[in-house]
């Protein structure tokens, strides 16, 4: 696909133009970390930007969201009214390819064949994703597709003081005035190869899914659980973890909040029976969901290798090590009959 060469100035002008029609969100530095926020219209992320602290999922699937309201009219019975769908047109600029890919995974859940989530869907339809390829991976990163275009409408490559712009989707092509810019020649495109990529072997692969099939009853889970404190940080910071709770609040709304399979209340039934009663089952569920159940259902692992869980786990439970242990455990692992 065609790539276009833009100077930093060209890029700023184009983004400014988009800002007339869209709310442009970009990585904004808050103290020491980046998160997506209102773009100031002049600055671009500098070398210190590696990725945002929080994944972009909350821009589509907020941590707290009103689903419907019970409207009380005096003298009448309450009326159930669905919350208005978000209408704002947005551009997310500077999202990393791993996180853009995570949106394509969330799409599989929220935009399923049978049921679509209207709140998520409205935000997806109203948002243009402009991703920015990493210049070098973080220590905690373990993605193996740093140039993935999945989930992106437009992909940007940063080359010294210039940018290569590659429109991907129809939406992206319509928003990029390609006629105004020069198409990049192969000498320039070749420079993409200078971008550093990490050398991790692909740890979240198909043979891992097969391995997981055999180790449901393995003692490995109990061993891993001894370290895990079931705090749920990994799931809240994971760009693909999407489990949620629905409750009614006293202000007269039905709300949806993020939830985590790490918590005991997640599956506890009213009778007190809990199908996943201890941390061992819950840790296993999280690993299984990402690397076995999700692939079974959608054909792809629910991990993009962003490394947030590696970086932020308070007890240094490194998912890369967990997966390697599962893959290389060999005879140490017991087979389930």
């Amino acid at each position: 696909m065609a790539k276009y060469l833009l100077t930093k100035k060209d890029l700023l002008i184009w983004l400014k133009k988009l800002q007339q029609e869209y709310e442009v969100l970009a990585p904004v530095k808050e103290k020491k970390v980046y998160n997506f926020g209102h773009w100031d219209g002049k600055s671009l992320p500098d070398k210190s930007y590696q990725n945002t602290l929080k994944p972009p999922k909350d821009l589509f699937f907020p941590q707290h969201e009103i689903l419907l309201k019970y409207k009380k009219v005096k003298g009448q019975r309450p009326i159930i009214k669905a919350a208005d769908l978000p209408e704002e047109k947005r551009v997310i600029f500077g999202i990393r390819p791993c996180d853009a890919k995570s949106l394509s995974l969330l799409d599989k859940v929220f935009l399923g064949e049978e049921y679509q989530d209207p709140f998520y869907q409205a935000r997806r339809l109203n948002t243009l994703i402009i991703s920015l390829v990493c210049r070098e991976p973080k220590e905690s990163c373990f993605c193996t597709q740093p140039f993935s275009v999945e989930g992106s409408d437009i992909v940007l490559f940063e080359l010294n003081d210039k940018y290569l712009v590659e429109p991907i989707s129809e939406k992206g092509k319509n928003c990029f005035p390609s006629a105004s810019y020069c198409e990049a020649d192969f000498h320039i495109i070749d420079k993409i190869k200078e971008i550093k990529i990490n050398t991790y072997e692909e740890i979240a692969s198909a043979d891992l899914t097969e391995k997981l099939d055999l180790i449901f009853d393995s003692p490995i889970w109990k061993e891993l659980q001894e370290k895990c404190i079931n705090c749920g940080v990994c799931s809240f910071l994971c760009p693909t973890c999407h489990c949620f709770d629905i409750t009614d609040n006293q202000q007269g709304s039905k709300v949806r909040n993020w939830d985590s399979c790490m918590f005991s209340g997640f599956t506890k039934q009213a009778s007190g029976h809990n199908p996943r009663p201890s941390g061992t089952e819950r840790l296993r569920q999280r690993v299984m969901h990402k690397f076995k159940y999700f692939p079974d259902k959608y054909g792809v692992v629910a991990c993009v290798g962003c490394g947030r869980c590696v970086e932020k786990c308070p007890v240094n439970l490194d998912i890369r090590q967990v997966l390697l242990q599962i893959k290389n455990g060999g005879e140490k692992l017991e087979c389930r009959m």
Binding site: F110, G112, D117, C243, F244, Y293, D296
Partner: peptide, 19 residues
């Protein structure tokens, strides 16, 4: 079978038994 459910439409992620 019975499991705790919230959405009923395969999204909230809690009523799975395996896949």
């Amino acid at each position: 079978l019975e499991m705790r459910m919230k959405c009923g439409i395969g999204k909230c992620g809690r009523c799975n038994i395996g896949s």
